[in-house]
């Protein structure tokens, strides 16, 4: 039972981190109808900066810079590539983001080499015990932070002028423009927010029990794609639920993999994609989505 609770809490925690990534992915899709395949590279860029800067400026300043830089890079991609690309279809833009991803990831991977970079976080490998349940401090901080950021985002989305402009533009861009909404700003801010969230996620993907940031970190980030897609690419609720489903599934599958040896080793890594496939077979638009993926 304690194992189960530990796995569950860890799953929810990692799921909340996936949800941060998936949420950014969904915001970008809602605002610009572009599937952003460069998302993992944004995450890597933010995480890399934190890892490189903390020995110089300290952890908190490094985190701040990493988040701001990822937001800036994302906004720059929107401004320089997405907005300028004078192409007819959103599928072409999605492919363009693959190009951007390759450029950024290749350069960062070269910089990282074979190193494993510590994140310099204050939580280290401390654990907390509640009764018989042992949890890493990092997992608890990740859960609380992700929950706070997601709540703040959803409140802003619902109640601020920015949120109203976002939703109006997502629902009907032409009419939003007719009402004076500046679509360029909406889309750039969506990218920036997504980039910032990805950088925070990078931190929590690379802290204990993970040894640190290395060149495979962007592969870990890929698990958030199924989270976004199974939730429905255009649903913020979907991103949250999708993130949690993926996180808990992965955690449970890894935790109990000895009992499920018949499924083969490493099932925890494949599970997110299996879950996504099964859900898409049943609901092609994802759990909460309104647009079928065929539209992408």
């Amino acid at each position: 039972m304690t194992t189960f609770v530990e796995l569950l809490v860890n799953g929810i925690s990692i799921g909340a981190v996936y949800a941060l990534i998936a949420l950014g992915f969904v915001i970008i899709f809602k605002a610009t109808e572009v599937v952003n395949f460069a998302h993992a590279s944004l995450l890597l860029a933010g995480g890399y900066l934190v890892a490189r800067l903390w020995p110089v400026v300290g952890f908190w300043a490094a985190l701040l810079i990493g988040v701001a830089a990822a937001a800036l890079v994302a906004a720059a991609i929107e401004f320089l590539v997405i907005r300028r690309a004078n192409v007819a279809s959103h599928s072409v833009l999605a492919i363009v983001t693959i190009g951007v991803d390759i450029v950024i990831t290749t350069e960062l991977t070269r910089q990282i080499g074979t190193d494993v970079l510590a994140m310099g976080d204050p939580w280290g490998s401390e654990v907390v015990r509640f009764g018989g349940v042992t949890l890493a401090e990092t997992r608890i901080v990740a859960l609380v932070t992700a929950a706070a950021l997601i709540t703040a985002f959803l409140l802003a989305f619902k109640y601020t002028g920015w949120g109203v402009a976002m939703r109006a533009a997502a629902e009907d861009a032409e009419t939003a423009a007719l009402m004076g909404v500046r679509l360029g700003r909406v889309s750039m801010s969506a990218w920036a927010v997504a980039g910032g969230l990805a950088a925070v996620a990078a931190l929590f993907l690379c802290v204990f029990p993970t040894p640190g940031l290395d060149r495979s970190t962007s592969l870990v980030a890929l698990k958030a794609f199924p989270a976004a897609i199974l939730g429905g690419l255009d649903s913020t609720t979907g991103a949250l639920v999708g993130g949690l489903i993926i996180g808990v599934t992965e955690s449970m599958m890894s935790g109990y993999q000895n009992d499920m040896a018949f499924l083969g080793r490493g099932i925890g890594d494949v599970a997110p994609f299996l879950v996504m496939l099964v859900i898409l077979l049943i609901r092609p638009a994802g759990l909460f989505g309104t647009k079928e993926l065929a539209r992408v």
Binding site: R167, E171, E174, M179
Partner: peptide
């Protein structure tokens, strides 16, 4: 110079109040 487009084009998924808000942003 503000247009009311053909076919009304209200933001169907938003509330009436939010639609008005979308018109008066800024």
């Amino acid at each position: 110079v503000v247009q009311v487009p053909e076919g009304r084009r209200v933001f169907a998924r938003m509330t009436v109040e939010e639609n008005l808000r979308a018109g008066g942003l800024g």
